[in-house]
Design a protein around this nucleic acid. Structure first.
Lengths: 244, 244
DNA sequence: CAGTGGTCTAGACCACAGA
DNA sequence: CTGTGGTCTAGACCACTGC
């Protein structure tokens, strides 16, 4: 029973570091973190693992590293913006900011690919592929926020309980043992509000909205869902962080 | 004079791999790349270096890796979309797609921070910080595309020759030996077209546009520029790729 | 089971910043 | 010159896929 508990080293380390940063008990008065060698002994990991973790924190906008100088905590980023690089679902990220996402109305209908309102950008589907068509109207702290229009491949995801429609579809898929999530393509653009969406957002037709089209793949490279997420333009803000 | 030429291993390897993928002489008929051990010997690098490079290709959307299966070339992503995770400038990326960005009109004016139309999101500037205010109207293949409104800190970037205004500001900064680029925050949202911007886009006031606010930092963590890039909503599409 | 990518260790050398 | 982060090597073991 030594001090061994280092399973899942990197994700656990990421979680630990975020916690300590938020509690403010790791950076000094200049927002500077201990050096890499110090952190290696502190968490009993090698430099590779540590730097993988620091890299993740960087991607999330928590820290930056300056060559020859040190590692620093970044001032907190724009409130209300969601990280577009996020790994957890949208709901989870907003809840960490103390905001609440609720689903006001949801419908689910079986269709075939031929009947879909749009197609995935990267792949081509057989016209008779069975799918679930899902439409959801979602609010952020009670205010209209997101109009979702998604298609999930029935043969892959199986049945979707009604209860899930009012919670997190992302979590439902992630918790399915037989499905391993892989990656996602996203294309963002601005569009004009349509009558159907305007009715929910309480905006006139032609008003701006932010649209995110995404295609989701299993780790095997198999497409399992594609969707169009429309955001009310006062509420929908996406944050990201890039190394130059 | 052995077969040694492995300076800049990872960035050179990335470049090499992209080239071979585009020429189609590396993947097999199932779009599958050789295995990691095979690539290691082929390019004479270790697994660490190889995987760093493959990770970059993944971020750029060129490939994906499936655990236990292999590495695959991805079908080409949405045409006209620009990778939001890109490292090179916007102009460079669009030119790789065979598109041409031209600057139709540009102005540069010395101002102080107090006079700026907007402020950086993350940092606070002294009100008397000297800056360059730059406005540019840029076209994509001759069609109105981007309305740029930027501020550069004069004390950091120095003088900006007029010629640069009609080329790539990003390259100008990157080529300055005394400046080392660090990272960038971006916040994207949709907005309504203003009169000034509508005049350029030939769109009515209130029409949608895609706006990207960004703050740019040196590798030392020092802010050196912040800008607001507005995109005509039929043209401006941003692509990104996320691991789940 | 063999073969794939994913994680992790241990250590070396390089490049940059600042005293 | 010392200390920082950036790159790279060599090799081990684990987890997943498909036969």
């Amino acid at each position: 029973m030594a001090q061994r508990e280092s399973s899942l080293a990197i994700s656990a380390l990421v979680k630990q570091l975020i916690e300590e940063i938020q509690q403010g008990n790791i950076a000094d008065e200049h927002h500077q973190l201990p050096t890499e060698p110090a952190l290696m002994t502190r968490y009993n990991v090698t430099r590779y693992t540590l730097r993988q973790a620091l890299g993740q924190l960087g991607k999330m906008g928590y820290i930056y590293q300056a060559h020859g100088i040190g590692t620093f905590v970044r001032p907190r980023v724009e409130q209300g913006a969601v990280s577009i690089q996020n790994v957890a679902g949208l709901t989870a990220e907003l809840e960490r900011q103390g905001k609440k996402v609720t689903t006001q109305k949801a419908t689910i209908t079986p269709v075939i690919a031929d009947q879909a309102a749009f197609q995935p950008s990267g792949s081509t589907l057989a016209p008779d592929t069975p799918m679930w068509e899902i439409k959801r109207q979602r609010c952020l702290d009670g205010v209209p926020y997101q109009f979702e229009h998604s298609y999930y491949l029935r043969d892959i995801v199986g049945d979707i309980p009604d209860s899930v429609l009012y919670g997190s579809l992302f979590e439902f898929i992630a918790n399915n043992e037989s499905l391993k999530l892989g990656f996602q393509d996203k294309v963002m653009d601005a569009r004009a509000v349509t009558p159907e969406i305007g009715a929910f957002f309480k905006l006139p037709v032609g008003a701006p909205m932010l649209t995110m089209r995404d295609d989701s793949y299993l780790s095997s490279g198999q497409l399992f869902a594609f969707s169009q997420l429309n955001y009310e333009y006062h509420q929908g803000k996406f944050f990201m962080f890039t190394k130059l």
